[in-house]
Each structure stands twice: as C-alpha cells, then as structure tokens.
C-alpha cells in the first residue's frame, strides 16, 4: 500500500511529524510536519513514489507563515499534506527544480504573501501587475495600502 510505503519512507527523513490523518475530517491520509529546509528532500521522495503536487499555498499566521503542500497520486488515492513553518522575513527553499508545477505556485505565493523562495529561477509576480507594491493576502494588508485609482 502506498500509504504505508510513504509513511515508512518519510519517517526515515527525520521530519518533525509523520502521522496518519483523519481522512473523514480533513480530507488527507497522511499529515507531515517538516522544516522548510527539508522540503526539497521530501519533494524528491514524493516524486520518486510517483506522487504529483496537488497544491501549494501559504497561510499567514501572526508569528509565522505556514507553507502547505498537498501531494496526491494518480493511481491510488493517498493525499499527503506537508506543513512547513517559515518565520516571517525568512526564505524557503524552492522545489521547482523537482516539480516544475511548483514554479508557478511559488510565484503565486510570493505574489500574494511576499514570501521569497531561495533558488527559484524566475521569482516574479504572477497575478498582480508587476509594478504593484503590496502583498494582498498578508493579514496586516490594509486597504489604505491600495493604490487609490488605477
């Protein structure tokens, strides 16, 4: 079973937490906590097992950002969610050289949260105009920061 395989392989990586998830409640089969620096390693392992990157996003908590990666598999349903806490003003390593899909997702996170990814080949804004000077999904983003009229 993929779930067991993944659990075993991931627990070898020294991660903060590898636990089965409550699928009925959270929609995920496996819940993982990792340090941002470990993400390339995790991603490489997931790719080896044939998983694809379902989504990558961030949540802005008062003290830190949490990067949330969802992986899934085409043949066997096994959704793995990886949380990685990034302190404010810190950078996270990119996984776009492993999963090209992450390229755009990371640009999106940078665009909306201002969270930088070290080693990303092309970290530009993606959704907002290039000349924008704010990151709208930060919690302290206030309307006064918006440019008055286009």
């Amino acid at each position: 079973m993929l779930l067991n395989e993944l659990t075993q392989a991931l627990s070898r990586l020294n991660l903060a937490q590898v636990a089965p998830g409550d699928y009925a409640k959270t929609g995920c089969h496996l819940e993982v906590e990792a340090a941002p620096a470990q993400m390339p390693e995790v991603a490489r392992l997931m790719l080896e097992k044939g998983c694809f990157l379902e989504s990558l996003t961030a949540v802005d908590f008062p003290e830190h950002f949490t990067l949330v990666y969802h992986f899934n598999h085409f043949r066997e349903l096994c959704r793995t969610v990886v949380h990685a806490r990034v302190p404010k003003e810190a950078e996270a390593p990119t996984i776009s050289h492993i999963y090209p899909a992450a390229n755009w997702y990371e640009r999106e996170v940078y665009d909306l949260f201002g969270l930088k990814f070290a080693g990303h080949p092309d970290l530009r804004r993606i959704l907002l105009p290039f000349e924008a000077d704010f990151h709208p999904l930060r919690k302290k983003f206030a309307p006064s920061e918006t440019p008055a009229d286009a």
């Binding site: 409640k25 959270t26 929609g27 995920c28 379902e54 989504s55 996003t57 949540v59 802005d60 949330v68 969802h70 959704r79 969610v81 999904l137």
Partner: peptide
C-alpha cells in the same frame, strides 16, 4: 483545516480551508 476536491470539467478543483472558529474563513485557497 480541510481539503476537499471534486472533478470539474477542466480537472480537479480543490478547496483548502482553514478555520479558526470565526464566522469568516481564516484562509481559503
């Protein structure tokens, strides 16, 4: 937090929802 997905005409549409016990979602991806 919860992740749900459905098969839309163009592919998988998923919602990642974080609730902090408020009347608004804390984060909705």
């Amino acid at each position: 937090e919860v992740y749900t997905a459905v098969e839309a005409a163009r592919g998988e549409f998923g919602i990642y929802l974080v609730s902090q016990g408020d009347t608004t979602p804390y984060r909705l991806k």
